[in-house]
């Protein structure tokens, strides 16, 4: 094994609520052109966790069973969401329904405040996280970059916190990197996942360079011209960003510093 291989293989492993996870990408399963393309993208990304949802079943249909079969065949862990829930009660009920159907106590908790921004209702979020944690759930709250909200989420028992990079589906990347940096610095021991807003592999790399533990994305892969290829691109970007973070990034400076030694510069008079 050469040095480069060693570095890649030594990349520390992600752990979520005590479970070792093989990849630092969590991938959404919505919006792919077909189930086959979804499967290809999941395989290409090497993800260990996919997000799923619950929706109204049609009488006589087996849509849900068919989707579950497809996901089961891929051998990935599912993280059900409460997407679309606007109140604490809706989110809590949906979480309980998801726990039964998907047989997992993990829940990606979304309490949405506003249709245009899909901004989390952080007050409802904290309240729902508290209720669900007491009900035995392992909560993955979708939140903003607000530090005090993160603190409250941690206080009610969330071991993982998922701040947005940008509003869901916008692909604008990390719009408030300074606040995200503060969040990382303030919670060195909490698992932080950038959820939503990631549009390009470089956004994912940036999140990893800032020291975030993982990224959760959907649209950037699902809506790519070639989702499997994009999933592979994100996988490479996340590995690169994480390695960079672990290797220790240089600090930027305002003024130039020559990288070639100054001593012995030719055509230069010393006196």
């Amino acid at each position: 094994m050469n040095v480069r291989d060693a570095a890649i293989h030594d990349t520390s492993q992600l752990s979520l609520y005590g479970q070792a996870i093989p990849s630092r990408i969590l991938l959404g399963t919505a919006g792919y052109p077909s189930p086959a393309i979804l499967s290809d993208a999941l395989r290409a990304s090497g993800v260990g966790i996919v997000t799923v949802s619950l929706r109204r079943e049609m009488a006589g249909e087996k849509t849900g069973a068919n989707f579950l079969k497809l996901i089961s065949a891929l051998g990935v862990r599912v993280l059900p969401n409460t997407a679309g829930c606007r109140t604490v009660r809706e989110a809590v009920t949906t979480a309980h329904m998801a726990r039964e159907v998907f047989a997992t106590d993990w829940i990606k908790l979304e309490v949405i405040a506003n249709d245009d921004t899909l901004q989390p209702d952080v007050f409802g979020l904290v309240e729902a996280a508290d209720i669900l944690t007491k009900d035995g759930f392992k909560v993955f709250p979708y939140t903003t970059e607000d530090l005090s909200v993160a603190e409250r989420l941690q206080r009610v028992g969330c071991q993982v916190i998922m701040p947005w990079g940008a509003p869901i589906g916008t692909g604008r990347g990390l719009v408030n990197p300074a606040a995200l940096k503060s969040l990382r610095a303030y919670f060195p021991d909490v698992t932080l996942i950038i959820d939503a807003g990631i549009g390009t592999p470089s956004h994912a790399a940036q999140a990893m360079e800032l020291g975030f533990d993982a990224v959760l994305l959907n649209t950037a892969v699902a809506k790519a011209a070639d989702p499997a290829r994009m999933a592979a691109a994100f996988s490479a970007a996340v590995t690169a960003g994480r390695l960079g973070y672990e290797a220790g990034l240089m600090l930027p400076r305002d003024m130039a510093v020559p990288s070639t030694p100054v001593a012995g510069t030719p055509f230069f008079d010393i006196d």
């Binding site: 079943e57 989707f67 329904m97």
Partner: peptide, 10 residues
């Protein structure tokens, strides 16, 4: 009454 089943999600 709500009867829900698994679906794709983000």
């Amino acid at each position: 009454v709500e009867i829900l089943s698994p679906r794709q999600g983000g």
